[in-house]
Amino acid sequence: MIRETHANGIKLTYREEGPPDAPLMVLLHGRTADHNGWNGITQHFAKRYRVLVPDLRGHGRSEWPGAYALPDMAEDIAALLDGTPAVIVGHSLGGIVAYHLAAAHPELVERLVLEDPPPPRPITGRAPLVEDDSTTFDWAMMHQTEAQFIGPDPAWKGAVRTITAPTLLFSGGPGSHVPSAEVAELIPGARLVTIDVGHLIHENARAEFLREVDAFLS
Rank of each mutant, 00 (worst) to 15 (best):
Y49E: 05
Y49C: 01
Y49P: 02
Y49M: 03
Y49I: 05
R50D: 01
R50P: 03
R50C: 02
V51G: 04
V51A: 06
V51S: 06
V51M: 08
V51C: 07
L52M: 14
L52Y: 09
L52W: 14
L52P: 01
L52K: 00
L52N: 01
L52V: 05
V53L: 04
P54R: 06
D55W: 06
D55H: 09
L56Y: 02
L56R: 01
L56H: 10
L56Q: 13
L56S: 13
R57M: 11
G58T: 04
G58Q: 02
G58Y: 00
H59A: 11
H59L: 08
H59Y: 02
H59S: 14
H59Q: 13
G60I: 04
G60F: 00
R61A: 14
R61E: 02
R61W: 03
S62L: 08
S62K: 00
S62N: 08
W64E: 02
W64Y: 09
P65G: 12
P65R: 08
P65V: 02
P65E: 07
P65N: 15
G66A: 12
G66K: 13
G66C: 13
G66I: 09
A67Y: 08
A67C: 12
A67T: 14
Y68V: 07
Y68F: 12
Y68G: 04
A69I: 04
A69E: 12
A69F: 12
A69C: 08
A69T: 13
A69N: 14
L70A: 13
L70R: 14
P71Q: 09
D72W: 10
D72M: 15
D72Y: 02
M73L: 15
A74Y: 00
A74M: 08
A74T: 07
A74E: 03
E75R: 15
D76T: 11
I77F: 12
I77Y: 09
A78C: 10
A78E: 11
A78I: 06
A78W: 01
A79E: 00
A79S: 15
A79K: 14
L80R: 04
L80C: 13
L80H: 10
L80T: 10
L81M: 11
L81H: 01
D82A: 15
D82C: 06
D82I: 07
D82Q: 13
G83T: 08
G83E: 11
G83C: 10
G83R: 10
